[in-house]
Simulated assay, not measured.
Amino acid sequence: MPRSPLALAALATVAIPGMDAFDVRRPAPGGGDHDVAVVIDSERRRWVVRAPASPAAGASLEAETALLELLAEHVDAGRVPFRVPRPAGFAHLPEGGRAVVHREVAGRPLRIDALAAGPGLAASLGRAIAALHELPVDLVENAGLPTYDAASYRARRLAELDEAARTGKVPPALLRRWEEQLEDVSMWRFQPTVVHGDLSAEHVLSDGMTVTGVLAWGDTQVADPADDLAWLVVAAPEDAVESIMEAYQLRRTELTDPHLLDRALLAGELALARWLLYGVRSGDPAVVADAVGMLEELDDHTHAADTEPSLA
């Protein structure tokens, strides 16, 4: 049973001695495997309390907490131009594990459809992602989070594709195109970096002009930097993507990766295959139907683009 907001507020008062909880609210959906609430104290400060809903979620939250404590040094030194959650207190749970409390990070969720070309928010987003990718990889290793080299990460993607193919629900033309790209070794010669792993509009906060914060670090790993760009390449306006990438490339100190955008686009498409696999593994027919519909739409779009007459 999910914990009620009042139960989460009680955990927050245990985690932060002396807290006088004045109000408690559920945030927007997106807590994933955690029960989440925003607690407002008598001084109108806003605190986020997160409690794991399963032992696996508890282990993930502990690893994320360790990473956030290491990241704080880089935030304070100005190596990343945004804020991250800072664990301020913990409350032990009767079933094991801990709830974590941190001050709410300022900003509003990014509106990806409102991104525009130029030196404003799009450029700030590019610099923010580049700064993340410049962080030392031992941050991830020391937090006990996954680390991949380029070859093992490509093998992981191939294994996912094989599993998706066995469902019989991926259009054959998509499968062939994805296989060709995954088997093209030249595309996969990249330098692994720290990767957030779950960047999305709800996890990137802004004040309208700059990126102010990044949330949800539980999927951080050392892997392909293209993964953090996939959501933008797929969904952001094309001219905004150009500004994002220009700022990103200027901020990276070592970037010789001619296939970065190719892999980002592929990662965005393969996210549909992972959504399908999630539906199959969890036995959720609604998720399977949603994934199949999006895969068919992508297949139609790809076929239309391939058969468009050339203007040359």
Rank of each mutant, 00 (worst) to 15 (best):
H92T: 14
A106P: 04
S54H: 13
F82T: 07
R108Y: 07
E43V: 11
A106W: 02
R44D: 15
A106L: 11
A88C: 04
L68P: 03
M19N: 06
M19D: 10
E95A: 15
E64L: 01
R44F: 13
A53I: 01
A106H: 12
A21S: 13
R98T: 06
A72H: 11
P85T: 13
A51P: 01
R86E: 12
A77T: 06
A57L: 06
I112K: 05
E95V: 11
L70A: 13
G31C: 03
L67G: 01
V49L: 06
P109R: 07
E73P: 00
G96H: 09
V84T: 15
A21M: 08
G78L: 03
V105N: 05
L68K: 02
A21T: 08
D35T: 04
E62W: 07
D35K: 02
V101G: 00
S42D: 14
L71G: 03
R45E: 14
R46I: 02
P29L: 11
G78F: 08
L68H: 03
V75G: 01
D33H: 11
P85C: 11
I112V: 15
A77H: 12
S42Y: 03
A63N: 11
F90Y: 14
L110D: 14
L110R: 13
A59I: 11
H34Q: 10
P81S: 10
A53G: 15
E69T: 11
F82W: 13
R50G: 02
V105Y: 01
E62L: 10
G97E: 08
G32C: 12
V39F: 12
P81D: 11
F22Q: 15
F22I: 02
H92Y: 09
M19W: 07
S42P: 02
A59Y: 05
S60C: 05
G96I: 08
A21W: 14
L71N: 05
R83S: 15
E64C: 03
A72N: 04
V24S: 06
D33G: 07
A37V: 10
R50P: 00
